[in-house]
Design a protein around this nucleic acid. Structure first.
Lengths: 240, 240
DNA sequence: CTTGACATCGCACAGATGTTCGTGTACAAT
DNA sequence: ATTGTACACGAACATCTGTGCGATGTCAAG
């Protein structure tokens, strides 16, 4: 039989994928209902039963949160694009083998982008309405690609404001000793005995460290004095 | 601190790992108790709380089956051999399930904080040495807590540089109409017909919007003209 | 128009499940 | 001896959560 899923069922699948990825445990039918604009638990159950008969999910009867996604089937149905992405693209450390469908992880770390914030436009805000998002930010891709060499630094003080990095921010870096021109790196300067976040430029045998904020002057050092610790991949600021 | 786990707690970890791998959802405390020869649910809870304070597991209060393993921490504690790595986890790191530490990718959204970055201090960078981390950033918690009401905005242009938010950054907000003084919010200003990110202050019937960058002047509006769309929870910048 | 499958809704109910609390034991410190 | 801490037990409790069932609306076929 041909799968004929309703938009609602697609939404349910997407929500489950996102929820499990984020929470590490499956949602309840009420949580699904709330997220997918379904007022009745029985309607959720009805749709879950449909999905189960299509073998897209597996359900344990009478067990709270007793459901899981059947990734091989989801892939066979061509639904990966609808509800998630294979992890293979996000983690290149995996690239040494053929992935079976089961070896996939949803790209659940995505949030709906409900608009752009730039002066002049209002934003429509209804975060619970999954369907209304016209774009999705894939935070998996954004933050966690090639996680192997990632580490974090917590920024102390205002020494990095020139790079628009504030006190308390978390800087996520990928360990590497070399950097391309223009990349922002964490560098240890031997002469100065300090570590800074700066844009890296190699001019012959000299290294120029440029602040993000143009009001701060560039700094020049012999290349031998600058040792790159890692490249800044992401900056995360928590505000609560 | 040194981890000092009882045999019972190791057993619990092992059981959780095995259960999640097989069932695709976490066990209840009663199931854990039955499997680990614990007659009382409160004893299971007691031990789970211990494991949680060691950050070996993550627990959602009052949520059935609301627990998950913290694999990076488990590895850091040298417990992978004790509890075994579930196939479902190995899959994320290695296609064939054979565990090689260097290639393994953990399926948990926390990264080690290997130090602080402030002028004057060197940073020891060995991202593979999880044990040396003096702090862990749980990005799950940092970004996706109460994710139901979260949405994102992509920043366009340099209109927010005064808030240290750059063009292209992703701003993650929690939907809410009210704000406390000092919180950074996305606000729609009726008179100006624009949306901005500013620190919010209510002075009597007036709203003061303060930029993060002190070189930008504050803005004042009647409270009726300012409508808060959401509170900024996180700012994420991608640099690659 | 009638019929029946499909999808939805609201609600009540029973079972599942985390939490709390009083109690007990063992052991080290005082 | 007394106190404090860590660990364990069991029962009671409140809530979470899946299921069942009757009612409603839609829509195409007869």
């Amino acid at each position: 039989m041909t799968l004929n899923l309703s938009e609602r069922q697609i939404n349910i699948l997407r929500y489950i994928a996102k929820f499990v990825d984020g929470q590490k445990y499956p949602p309840t039918i009420r949580e699904i209902g709330a997220a997918c604009d379904i007022s009745s638990t029985s309607v959720v159950k009805y749709n879950l039963s449909k999905l189960e008969s299509d073998e897209l999910i597996v359900r344990a009867a009478e067990v709270s949160r007793g459901l899981s996604l059947n990734w091989p089937k989801l892939e066979a149905a061509g639904l990966l694009g609808e509800i998630g992405q294979p992890v293979g693209q996000a983690i290149n450390g995996l690239a040494n083998g053929v992935h079976r469908a089961a070896e996939r992880v949803v790209n659940f770390f995505s949030v709906p982008v409900l608009g752009h914030i730039a002066a002049g436009e209002p934003i429509q805000v209804d975060p619970t309405d999954y369907a209304s998002a016209d774009e999705w930010i894939d935070l998996n891709e954004a933050i966690f690609r090639d996680r192997e060499k990632l580490f974090a630094l917590r920024v102390q003080g205002d020494s990095m404001v020139d790079a628009s990095v504030l006190d308390g921010d978390i800087v996520i870096l990928r360990q590497q000793e070399r950097a391309e021109n223009g990349e922002m790196v964490a560098a240890w300067i031997t002469g100065q005995e300090e570590t800074t976040l700066k844009h890296f430029y190699l001019d012959g045998k000299n290294v120029r460290l440029r602040a993000a904020n143009p009001t701060y002057p560039d700094m020049f050092f012999p290349a031998s004095q600058v040792s790159v610790k890692g490249k800044v991949v992401s900056v995360i600021r928590q505000l609560e």
